[in-house]
Amino acid sequence: MFDRCNVGLWIGFLGAGFLLLGPLYAATTTIKIAGSTTLLPILSEAAKQYRVTHPDLSLTVSGGGSGMGVANIERGTIDIGMASRPLSEREAERLGASIDVIPVARDAVAIAVSKAVYKSGVTQLSLAQIAAIYRGEIRNWRELGGLDAKILVIDKEASRGTRHVFATVVLGSARARAPGATIITGSNNEEQSVISRSDQAIGMISNAWLNDRVRAIAVGEGDMAVLPTIENVALGRYMIKRDLNILVPKGSGDEVKGFVAFLRSEQGQAIVETVGFHSVR
């Protein structure tokens, strides 16, 4: 008798629960996008504009980093991954056959310093000097001609695309350690916020995140030093650069394909340039 009653209770509650949820369950097509925060502004803006012409589509965009973009596309939990770096060899082995890597923009990774550092005279550094900072061999701005202040060395989470590119060019290997690092940050926004709030920071950041308080320094020896401008990237003068890619599973539905085509169209590439990157066209 008790058992029947108990079961009744259970069914009652579960039933009530699902009745409440029922109306919410109505399928519309959703495109889930996640990954590199460098690509976030591009995809966000594109999704916003795309929705105007495709009101039946729902697009969600979230960050998390290139590593997350790759991991999630592999898990199949998202429809489009964003990666601000090429696939690693192991990733390419696993995913090469099933995923298309499509570049949608070009970008430079700037070596950024706090405004105070820039004002104190550190406006250019050679690759070797930058490497020495990240290896912990140079610890004070004074050694580089700046003020007598310790260097706040900002490294990024290991799986971040920006770090991948930076480490490849500056430290010699995509997976190199940076024993000189003081703290670790994640997204471009987070790093921008740390640099702008400090007076003695150096970090690696996408070109599009530079501002008055986060200044790019020229990279190179003497007169050969170049700033990470769009022109210098286009002409191949600035070395720390990368393609910003989206990862799309082969055999995606038409909705996804349509959005990808939009990204690479003239209108899509115009968005790329408005938010501060270089077009791939």
Partner: peptide, 30 residues
């Protein structure tokens, strides 16, 4: 997810929440 959802259209769709909103803004707000 950070944004992009107003009304989740099914129980299988992600949502945005106040908690994560505060978190992301605190971490990345500039």
């Amino acid at each position: 997810v950070f944004s992009g959802v107003v009304w989740p259209d099914s129980i299988f769709s992600p949502v945005t929440t106040l908690q994560t909103h505060i978190f992301y803004l605190a971490q990345e707000g500039n």
